[in-house]
């Protein structure tokens, strides 16, 4: 059997003794377009960042294509939240997109002509050719998001993780992004997206992960996008669970258990 692009087993992550993710299992099929849905503070971004090895989990593991996470993340194109970078940095749009190509070049090697052509093509795909020489600070929010997307495209990865790519963009940009995502899927790439808009989730994705500290449900959209499951994700039942979990985590024996699982 072919290894899954992303495999997560019993993943627990906490910030300052407060659990954010608790025992999450997940296996993403190759070529699926997955939306991660859940209320604020449900751990959606944390899950993505843990997969990208930016956060060290307290327990559990992540495998990329059945192998080691640290090597695996080089096969992932990551699109962070727009606010996470310094937009005053002295780089142009083209510079940022070429950064996506650096993943394919080694130290001391220069960016070649073919890399520039790829970057140009990516820029065209997101409809930003006219802005190639613009300093990134002089772009609107939607344009900045397109730049990020073009950089991910230039990376030409097998898996893409995107943290709220639709946040604060206008309708035109949202359409551009979604058509690019569908293209990626056609090419057999696996795309995982943190999303916050329930209304559009059903038409955008083919798989859905409902997350609220725990995995509430994961599966094809028509099986998961049900009133009952959404209620369970956003509704009151789980708030009790999260309260108890954070209270319990402050008690010594559970903390010890967490530390043990870390070792």
């Amino acid at each position: 059997m072919k290894a899954k692009p992303i495999e997560i087993h019993d993943l627990t992550v906490s910030f300052q003794k407060k659990p954010v993710l608790y025992g999450v299992d997940l296996e993403v099929e190759e070529g699926s377009l997955v939306g991660i849905i859940g209320p604020n503070g449900a751990g959606k971004s944390t899950l993505i960042k843990t997969i990208m090895n930016m956060i060290t989990p307290n327990g559990g593991y992540v495998k990329i294509f059945g192998g080691n996470q640290k090597n695996g993340i080089k096969r992932i194109g990551y699109v962070p939240q727009r606010e996470s970078v310094d937009w005053d940095f002295p780089v142009t749009v083209m510079d940022v997109i070429l950064m996506g190509r650096y993943a394919h070049t080694r130290w001391f090697r220069k960016i070649g002509k073919s890399d520039r052509q790829v970057a140009q093509a990516c820029l065209e795909q997101v409809d930003m050719t006219a802005f190639a020489d613009r300093q990134i600070g002089n772009l609107s929010g939607g344009q900045q998001q397109r730049v990020f997307l073009a950089r991910a495209l230039a990376q030409d990865s097998s898996i893409y993780l995107m943290d709220e790519p639709f946040a604060g963009v206008d309708a035109v940009t949202e359409k551009t992004i979604i058509s690019i995502l569908k293209n990626m899927k056609k090419e057999g790439k696996t795309v995982v997206i943190v999303h916050h808009d329930l209304a559009t989730a059903k038409e955008y994705f083919d798989h859905l992960l409902l997350l609220n500290m725990r995995k509430v449900a994961y599966g094809p959209i028509n099986q998961v996008f049900t009133h009952e499951l959404l209620q369970k994700t956003y509704g009151g039942k789980l708030t009790v669970f999260s309260e108890i979990a954070s209270r319990a985590a402050k008690q010594p024996e559970i903390e010890n258990k967490m530390q043990r699982s870390e070792n």
């Binding site: 962070p80 940095f89 950064m99 993943a103 070049t105």
Partner: peptide, 18 residues
């Protein structure tokens, strides 16, 4: 180029192995 990427977007830089 490594300095450029890690200055602009450190988490992205780490993700491509810098």
């Amino acid at each position: 180029k490594e300095l450029l990427i890690s200055g602009f977007d450190p988490s992205f830089a780490r993700s491509i192995g810098i």
